[in-house]
């Protein structure tokens, strides 16, 4: 389990993957070391934002300092990411930041922008390494080729038979969002698919 801000919290708050993650190196790890690195990202603030007012969007983007991305893409930096989810709908993700929702709500009219907190509803796994795309290819029919799905692309797809959102953070770094209730099953499938390449769980 990932460390949470306060010691009090760590007793109380538990990720959907808390009971399934084993740390270390597994699978076909060669002398060159593992070619995949898998870890959970937790806790995160995951906020869904709906608005069809472009002016509001510009204002929020100024407030957050991140542009709202177009269809099938993401924007952001190491900390804050905004993912396109669907028409007039985005997902804002960042390491836990409780006041993000308050921050936006204070600045904007609640009839113009609609926020839904999904921080606990999704489990997030980061898949990194030179075979990361090979693992994604096993689970989904999206074209994961670098030329079609490069950095800052995102896809909402059926990954290993589960609804997943995949954010390409960098050429070989992917953040995968999955419904919390399926997290344990997803983890099992993911590491099974990764075993032939050798992986390390951090």
């Amino acid at each position: 389990m990932t460390e949470v801000n306060t010691s009090k919290n760590s007793l109380r708050r538990q990720s959907g993957l808390a009971h399934v993650i084993n740390y270390g190196q597994f699978g076909n790890v060669t002398l060159n070391g593992p070619s995949l690195f898998i870890c959970e990202r937790h806790p995160l603030t995951i906020l869904q934002l709906d608005t069809n007012k472009s002016k509001t969007l510009t204002d929020i983007s100024n407030l957050l300092n991140v542009e709202f991305p177009h269809t099938n893409t993401c924007n952001g930096d190491d900390k804050r990411r905004i993912l396109w989810l669907g028409p007039n709908r985005w997902l804002i993700v960042e390491p836990e930041h409780e006041c993000l929702q308050t921050l936006i709500n204070n600045e904007f009219n609640s009839s113009e922008v609609f926020l839904t907190d999904l921080s606990h509803g999704k489990s997030t796994v980061r898949l990194r390494g030179r075979n990361a795309r090979d693992v994604l290819m096993k689970g989904s029919g999206v074209d994961w080729h670098l030329n079609s799905f490069g950095a800052d692309y995102c896809a909402h797809t059926k990954l290993f038979d589960l609804a997943a959102t995949v954010d390409c953070r960098d050429i070989d770094v992917f953040d995968i969002y999955i419904a919390r209730g399926f997290a344990e099953d997803f983890w099992g499938t993911l590491v099974d698919a990764a075993a032939e390449f050798g992986y390390q769980v951090d």
Partner: peptide, 10 residues
Amino acid sequence: PLCGPRDHAE
């Protein structure tokens, strides 16, 4: 029209 070509299973 938004996401591009996908398997019908999606």
